[in-house]
Simulated assay, not measured.
Amino acid sequence: MNSALYLLENPLIRGLAGALIVVGMISVSVLILIWAERKIIARLQHRYGPNRAGKFGILQTIADGLKLFLKEDITPAGVDRITYSLAPVLCFALAMIPFIAIPVGRNYIVADLNAGILFILAVASLSVIPVMMAGWSANNKYNLLGGLRGAALMISYEIPAGLAIIGILVQSGSLRLADIVEAQRDGWFILPQFLGFAAFLISAFMESARPPFDLLEAESEIVQGWTTEYGGVKFALLMFGEYTHSVLSAMLIAILYLGGWLGPFDSSLWLIIKALLVMIFLMWVRASVARIRIDQMLNFGWKVLIPIALLNIVIAGIVRLHYY
């Protein structure tokens, strides 16, 4: 009994257990969401979508994953082998790390950090590194163009996303995500912070490179962009990491603007439902909006979103002074 208690109280054991739980839960969630997205988009486009592997095609994502993991791991000639092989692992790791600071409920969190939102933004900003590594190391012009596009987009849209969150910090008075949720008991921040919400929503999902904002890949322009020379397990890790960023964005939007786990009764179920609704909205956007040009996206980020985010900070400051 004493040895069991020691293991539970050991920070290293608790950290490893928490990490395994996070990776397991996010992995299962991503697999289900990929299947759901394919079915939803198919219905929006008057198609059936996956309907062969398992009931309603529920096993299709698992079949695709097995196919990728069982493929021969081919390394093209002329690549920088270390950087080429390290990029998928780093992409997957950096996508998972922010979830340790995401509170699923009031007492359900791996690492309850006082500056949790800063930690998440700091780690998320590193996601440009594996994109550049994959783009440069593959010795392919399409990979390089995709990597450069990724760097330009991520740098451009991190600024309005960070500025949009400042309004949240002004209203909540805390950097701790649980405190931000509790500050919304009298009303979600989506209404007083609507400009910030719009700026963060657009920034987060453009930075996640989801269609129709997937200019890092842009099959109609640069083949598969930064992942062109990748296949098998490496490609699976890159795509899994990229999709996980979308899940992280949906969770953050639910926590920062939609009251997190607050509802008729406090429950982690409300957070999951809100994040799922955000993901469904993005699926609908993917099925409905055509891909725009890279210069249009960059201009929109610098000339529209940043001024909107700055205006939101001014409004949040005025409201704070007026009521407090």
Rank of each mutant, 00 (worst) to 15 (best):
R176D: 02
I159F: 10
G196I: 06
I190T: 10
V181E: 09
I159D: 06
A161T: 08
L148T: 06
M154R: 06
E182V: 14
L191M: 07
L153N: 09
D186M: 14
I159C: 05
S172P: 01
L177G: 00
L201I: 07
I155S: 10
M154C: 03
I159K: 12
Q193R: 11
L201W: 13
L169K: 04
F194P: 00
M154D: 13
L163E: 05
V181K: 07
M154T: 02
I168K: 11
D186L: 10
L195T: 10
S174F: 04
I165Y: 04
I155T: 14
R149H: 03
A199R: 06
V181N: 02
A198C: 06
L169M: 13
S174Y: 03
Q171R: 11
R149E: 03
I155Q: 03
W188Q: 07
E158F: 05
F194I: 14
I168Y: 08
L191Q: 06
S172G: 13
D179Y: 02
G167D: 12
A152G: 04
L195E: 13
W188N: 11
G187H: 06
I159Y: 07
Q184T: 01
I190Q: 10
L191P: 07
L177V: 07
F200S: 05
L195V: 13
R176P: 01
I166F: 05
V181I: 07
L195R: 03
G187E: 04
I168F: 08
F194L: 07
G167Q: 14
L153R: 12
I155M: 11
A198Q: 03
L195W: 14
I190M: 10
R149L: 00
Q184K: 03
G150P: 00
L148N: 12
A152S: 11
E158D: 04
A183P: 02
A198S: 08
L201C: 09
F197S: 05
G173D: 09
I166R: 13
G173Y: 03
A183W: 00
I168R: 03
A199F: 13
A161C: 05
Q171M: 13
L195S: 08
Q184F: 01
Y157P: 04
A152V: 10
A151V: 14
A151G: 14
D179P: 03
E158V: 02
I168T: 08
Q171W: 02
M154L: 08
I155H: 13
L148M: 14
L175T: 12
F194W: 12
Q193T: 04
F194K: 04
A199H: 09
S172K: 05
R185G: 11
I155E: 13
I190V: 15
L148I: 15
A178G: 12
F200I: 09
